[in-house]
Write a protein that binds this DNA or RNA. Sequence first.
DNA 1: GAGCTGATTGTCT
DNA 2: GACAATCAGCTCT
Length: 182
Amino acid sequence: MRFLDREAALVAPALLGAKFLVDGVGGQIVEVEAYHPTDPASHSFRGPTPRNGAMFAGPPRVYVYRSYGIHWCINIVCANASAVLLRALEPTDGIAAMRQRRGLEDVRTLCSGPGKLCAALGVTGALDGHMLDAPPFTLVLPRGAAAAVAIGPRIGISKAMEVPWRFGVAGSRFLSKPFPKA
DNA sequence: GAGCTGATTGTCT
DNA sequence: GACAATCAGCTCT
C-alpha cells in the first residue's frame, strides 16, 4: 500500500487494471478520477469537515460520500488529502451478487458509473474511513504491462473542468462514458 | 443514438 | 436555502 503515499494524480493511472473487491465482489478498475486539495472541485478544497474527514485521515483508506442524496461514491485516499474516485469496474468476481443487488442482467452497465459501482459492490456510508488493506476490501495491483491509458476531463463537476484528471482503460466497453478519441 | 429532466437528501453557506 | 464527483427514463432526431 506504500504506493498510495503519493498524490492522487500519480496514483490514479496506476490503479487502472487493479482488481478491487468488497467482500469478494468486484472486478478490474477501468476508470478513475483524481481529486486534490488545491482543486476547487475536490471535497478537500475547503479543508476538513465532518463529511470529508476520511480524506484527511490519510492512506490506505476509503472515503465514501453520498451524492445527489441518492447514490454512494467511493474514493481511495492518497497522500496530502488527495483521493482517487472509482468511476467504473469491469465485473469479474461475484457477478451473480452484483446482478442481484442491481436487479440487472447487463454486465456492461453493472458498474459503469460511481453510483452504480457502489450499489453493485454493496458500498455504503458505513464503510467511510475504513482501511483499504483490511476486510472487507481487497486491492490487487496489476501485474506486468499497464493497459493503454486514456486521459480526459472529469465528469459531473462545475469547477476546474479544464483539468484532465480522468483516467481510463482505452477502448474498454465498461466505461461510464467513452473518452474523446485520442 | 444523443440530449434533456426529475428524483432525493446530506452538507455547507 | 442552494447545491451536488449521479442515474434512469423519457423525447426527439
